[in-house]
Design a binder for these strands. Sequence first.
DNA 1: CTTCGATGTGACCAGATTGTAACCGGCGCC
DNA 2: GGCGCCGGTTACAATCTGGTCACATCGAAG
Lengths: 225, 225
Amino acid sequence: MKILVADDDLDLLGLVAYSLSNAGYLVVKASDGHAALATFDAETPDLVVLDINMPGTSGFDVCTAIRARGDVPVMMLTARGEEQDLVKALDLGADDYLTKPFSPRTLLARVKALLRRASADRAHAPLSAGRVTLDLEGYTVRVGNGEPISLTKLELRLMQMLLAQAGRAVNSDRLLVQVWGHRGSGDRQLLKQLVHRLRHKIEANPAVPQLLQTAAPSGYKLVVE
Amino acid sequence: MKILVADDDLDLLGLVAYSLSNAGYLVVKASDGHAALATFDAETPDLVVLDINMPGTSGFDVCTAIRARGDVPVMMLTARGEEQDLVKALDLGADDYLTKPFSPRTLLARVKALLRRASADRAHAPLSAGRVTLDLEGYTVRVGNGEPISLTKLELRLMQMLLAQAGRAVNSDRLLVQVWGHRGSGDRQLLKQLVHRLRHKIEANPAVPQLLQTAAPSGYKLVVE
DNA sequence: CTTCGATGTGACCAGATTGTAACCGGCGCC
DNA sequence: GGCGCCGGTTACAATCTGGTCACATCGAAG
């Protein structure tokens, strides 16, 4: 599990990072909002701990941007008594918050709860639908009773996103953001290629896709069963 | 949205219930743990607000029981400074907690956040009026019991605008701005074409439109019966 | 360093979608 | 009638989009 911690207070940043890595999490740090976003895109963490009060790009801005990219859980850190901030943070889509000062133990419990909830959500959207089964750890798909087909990282991500909405069309822009992060936004060629490559792996006849179908206009869908 | 509130402190129960129903939620109340569980089963609420300290069946027990039944979001209420309780509650699968005393506004914000998270990908409600149904994501219309007809982006936009005012005439200039933005403003030919193309898709006899009718002196309307 | 798979980038084609222009016919009006 | 306005229609051009190919780049493994 990878956790991104962003705080401009280096003492606190260090403390939080220490507590978390001590508990077995992989921690990446950022000391301002801009760096936090860059690191987020580069590292794709499973959870983000975010201080609200940061110079430049504030925690609010970072939270908004992260929400636009997906549903990674976000925990906000705030000074005591800033109830306005809390309300705003939660409205922006933060999942939880902690009021400073807080004990490492509380932090760990909340982080654990958030991660469990996130993984429960993921389990809620099962990794198989109809005759398509995705093995996230083995990087493979199985279609019907066929042999498992090994996928690359990006192919797996794409399948995962499509599978989560199996049968329904998913917008290209959304796929771009979900698979590549904000970098890919707007670049349809990336998606075009990935779909092409994926079809050659999983379709009996890639020219007439049965599974990974194009959904006019500007989207794809996974047809299961 | 239905919310179950369980608390043995009747004042607080009333206050919470009042705040929530004031915000438009449907509230069901329970004043002890046992009643909470019974009500939960009877009412199948979308969210549960649960006081930890209740005589008999405690909030912990209720939470555990609810978790066994499904993944309805649970918010726990606890007295200040009972950090042990928090940790335990979150470990039992509670999704969030509030420390008493709390302001109604905070409560609302947190409830809102939980509900949003829970229903992140619900709300696929297709837009419909009379015998016309528009599927915004699938880019299709259905007229009566006919086959879904696939639409292009602009056609969908136009249908959406007309459907929103179903039965009433909509001014051409307004449609132009709504479909094309300010670029299209003033260019009647654009709209003329689009209407023409749309009629050929959805009308049995495009020369005698039954659905997408011309409305004098300068507009169109969708007749849905 | 070389090799290889994975990924990014640019180019091209075909078909769908959309924009533009021209023409037709009805209508009210002077 | 002649005129202009309006909406409908036809035809065609411009643009967009997705599929495909070829090749560049990158990073890990050998």
